[in-house]
């Protein structure tokens, strides 16, 4: 079946739509659960992780990669959860984290600012001015976050398969449209697309595990053949090789694992 990602602004009824789609299709509905899982799995304070994936990186953080580390943990937790398919994810940047997977249906839900402000006022019992300011700040942060980390604008419609404006199209209509589209054959997992998903999850998991031990690496996987590229040399590279060898028995799904040193271009086959 399919993986559905719903990109949405706060208070734009995206959450309600995601839950209804999940109920209608009998799928799991994910959002905050991913933060909890990442926090639990990689032993990071939940609040730090939440802040890292919500706020755009500062100038200093763009040099120190402080935020990108947390994002790696988050992406690993997300890919682990969605690899089994039949999932509706309405959290942050699903269409980017899971990019390249053909059975991924990318939906963006937008709604009128005045309606979002009204929803926020009703839910949190605050003034119109405060509600508007919070929503606009939130939108700005999210836009900045994606632009600074991935160089794309989340408001660019070409990133999605469907963009639905909730106004004349009601929540129920949107749910019907999404359920219908998710049933199309191209959004059903094939052996190739499932393999791609498994490879992505595997690469993310290995990267997160190595990052947890302060190795700055990039990881790719193709049919379980994993390539770890690192800038390490000498003793550090040796340590990385040793750790990588252990990973073969720790992480399931690895057929072959290679460590490439980008600094020396030397290749070590494990």
């Amino acid at each position: 079946m399919a993986i559905i990602t719903l990109s949405r602004g706060s208070y734009s009824k995206g959450k309600e739509i995601a839950e209804k789609v999940a109920a209608c299709m009998n799928y799991d509905c994910l959002s905050r659960e991913v933060i909890l899982e990442a926090s639990d799995r990689f032993n990071i304070p939940e609040i730090k992780l939440e802040k890292a994936i919500h706020d755009a990186p500062s100038i200093l953080e763009r040099f120190t990669h402080g935020k990108s580390d947390y994002i790696t943990y988050y992406q690993s937790a997300l890919t682990r959860r969605v690899r089994k398919d039949n999932v509706v994810y309405h959290g942050l940047a699903g269409h980017i984290f899971l990019g390249g997977i053909s059975h991924l249906l990318k939906v963006r839900i937008i709604s009128d600012l005045s309606m979002r402000v009204r929803n926020k006022m009703e839910t949190e019992n605050i003034s119109e001015q405060d509600a508007r300011a919070i929503i606009l700040k939130d939108d700005h942060e999210r836009r900045n976050w994606t632009q600074k980390l991935y160089g794309v604008d989340p408001w660019d419609s070409s990133l999605y398969d469907l963009v639905i404006f909730i106004d004349k199209i009601t929540v129920e209509d949107a749910v019907n449209i999404i359920c219908r589209v998710a049933g199309f054959k191209q959004f059903k997992a094939t052996r190739e697309s499932q393999q791609k998903m498994d490879d992505l999850a595997l690469a993310c998991e290995i990267k997160a595990l190595l990052l947890n031990e302060h190795f700055d690496v990039s990881v790719t996987s193709d049919y379980g053949n994993v390539v770890i590229s690192a800038k390490a040399t000498g003793r550090q590279l040796q340590k990385l090789n040793e750790r990588a060898t252990q990973l073969i028995s720790e992480v399931s799904g690895i057929n072959n694992l290679e460590v490439h040193s980008e600094a020396t271009q030397r290749q070590t086959v494990i």
């Binding site: 419609s157 999605y160 398969d161 219908r180 191209q186």
Partner: peptide, 24 residues
């Protein structure tokens, strides 16, 4: 995108399927 009710990308969705979405 807020100037449209619906946007359909043809990168994954076939034109015939897009027609069905619109008519419904």
């Amino acid at each position: 995108p807020s100037k449209y009710d619906l946007m359909v990308s043809l990168s994954q969705i076939d034109p015939d399927e897009a027609v069905r979405i619109i008519t419904e």
